[in-house]
Design a protein around this nucleic acid. Sequence first.
DNA 1: TTAAAAATACGAAATGTTTCGTAGACCACT
DNA 2: AGTGGTCTACGAAACATTTCGTATTTTTAA
Lengths: 129, 129
Amino acid sequence: MITYKPTDSELEILQIIWQDGPSSVRAINDILNQRREVGYTTTLKLMQIMNEKGIVERDTAAKSHIYRANAREYDTKNSLLTDFVNTTFQGSAMSLVMQALGNNQASQSELNELKDLISQIENQQPNGK
Amino acid sequence: MITYKPTDSELEILQIIWQDGPSSVRAINDILNQRREVGYTTTLKLMQIMNEKGIVERDTAAKSHIYRANAREYDTKNSLLTDFVNTTFQGSAMSLVMQALGNNQASQSELNELKDLISQIENQQPNGK
DNA sequence: TTAAAAATACGAAATGTTTCGTAGACCACT
DNA sequence: AGTGGTCTACGAAACATTTCGTATTTTTAA
């Protein structure tokens, strides 16, 4: 699966689209402006570039174009995650997991969820690696 | 703790320094060239800039300067991790952990290590969040 | 049917990163 | 003293990202 790696700015827009569904530039710019001041044409330009790159596609039928994400949220995050593990944790997903877990207070229910996942993995490959 | 956020190129150099200890430009460039072709002055310039930014410090006593990392490996990775969780997983370290774990085949000993960490966390705060 | 409002297209400045050529300094030999 | 090798310093090109001004097109509504 080929997922173009978005920049942080692009990812921020993608997150909005994943959350709200296909959106107009106006809608996205409004949300961005709840966080910080961004010019409308700045957002427009960014989204046009994302379109050129193939990160988003747009429906130009209506007056205001509607942009939708071209890749699934999960896939994109997975690609970013792999990349991050490679550059920052030298390919070791486990050391990332340990450090992420060690530095954040997880609730008991989250820990339970995690333990479930672990036993699920253990059952898939019951005899170790 | 103030850790300047390195770029990917800068991080690659930092990893070498963390691994090998304080190093000359020559030593680092040699290692980089085992991976891909990089001009000596390219590496030099990068490290000079890292020095200006305060990412590394250098000992200029000898002919060839010796560079050392200014921040600890753990702290730097933690800062990058926090940043990554915020931009990509909207602040949820747990969803990062779950996705990282779900997509990589962990060995039984790694899983055991992880389970140890979990029970350690559970003992620290035995009554949930 | 016009005038205002809202949208897109385009280009370019500002900024940051990466890459490397060239020049000059400093040694170590011969 | 002169030559070659190694190093640092400097500047600038190439590239990508971010930001936004201006022009143009489209829509709406009076």
